[in-house]
Amino acid sequence: MSEQAAAAPHVKKPGWFTVNVLNRSIAWLTDRGLSVWGSRVLAVRGRKSGEWRRTPVNVLTLDDERYLVAPRGHVQWTYNMRVAGGGRLLLGKRVEEFTATEVGDDDKPAVLRAYLKRWKAEVGVFFDGVGPDSSEQELRAIAPKHPVFRIDRAPGKR
């Protein structure tokens, strides 16, 4: 387990509406090939079972790089990603295999700012009052709580 994961505070669980309505609706649309503001279904192998686990995610593009941000903190898909080193992004029948590199806390503020600028209405509650207009210092303070992965297409994959 990384130092970041070891220092993880209590994870904020999503509410009933998010789990039963929002996530399921976005996953349903994404399964049918309709992206909602960059939504994809992330598939990553479980670190213990080896079985594919799926969860809806928002893919952020910033300066020609793509990122996955964990707004709810250190959750199952982040632990699995650290072990697997990549996974698949699904949009309808399209499957994109990728590799993932975890971003260090010092490099997260610009990514977190851009993520919050785009999706604050959806995920802002998980960022302890920090938003896209917060100071660099405030973004650095929350960085350890929110894993970020830079994703790249897997070599030889389209």
Rank of each mutant, 00 (worst) to 15 (best):
residue 158 R to C: 12
residue 78 T to D: 11
residue 60 L to V: 04
residue 63 D to A: 15
residue 29 L to D: 00
residue 157 K to Q: 14
residue 17 F to L: 14
residue 95 V to M: 08
residue 125 V to G: 08
residue 22 L to Q: 07
residue 111 V to A: 13
residue 27 A to W: 01
residue 11 V to E: 11
residue 26 I to Y: 00
residue 39 S to D: 02
residue 78 T to W: 11
residue 142 I to A: 12
residue 86 G to C: 09
residue 148 V to L: 11
residue 50 G to Q: 09
residue 3 E to A: 13
residue 136 E to T: 13
residue 5 A to C: 05
residue 124 G to M: 05
residue 4 Q to A: 15
residue 115 Y to Q: 12
residue 13 K to N: 04
residue 36 V to E: 02
residue 51 E to L: 10
residue 151 I to M: 02
residue 11 V to G: 10
residue 87 G to S: 09
residue 41 V to Q: 12
residue 116 L to W: 06
residue 90 L to Y: 07
residue 109 P to I: 02
residue 76 Q to N: 00
residue 8 A to R: 14
residue 20 N to F: 09
residue 123 V to R: 04
residue 106 D to R: 13
residue 61 T to F: 01
residue 50 G to M: 10
residue 140 R to F: 06
residue 94 R to N: 14
residue 79 Y to E: 04
residue 73 G to V: 11
residue 8 A to K: 09
residue 132 P to W: 14
residue 150 R to H: 03
residue 118 R to F: 08
residue 82 R to I: 09
residue 65 E to Y: 03
residue 158 R to V: 12
residue 3 E to F: 10
residue 134 S to Y: 06
residue 29 L to C: 08
residue 31 D to Y: 03
residue 13 K to F: 04
residue 79 Y to P: 03
residue 108 K to W: 03
residue 34 L to M: 13
residue 9 P to M: 13
residue 23 N to M: 00
residue 130 V to M: 07
residue 3 E to L: 08
residue 84 A to M: 00
residue 153 R to W: 08
residue 48 K to N: 03
residue 140 R to E: 11
residue 38 G to F: 15
residue 1 M to W: 03
residue 139 L to I: 06
residue 100 A to E: 10
residue 112 L to C: 13
residue 130 V to D: 04
residue 1 M to V: 14
residue 36 V to G: 06
residue 115 Y to D: 12
residue 80 N to R: 00
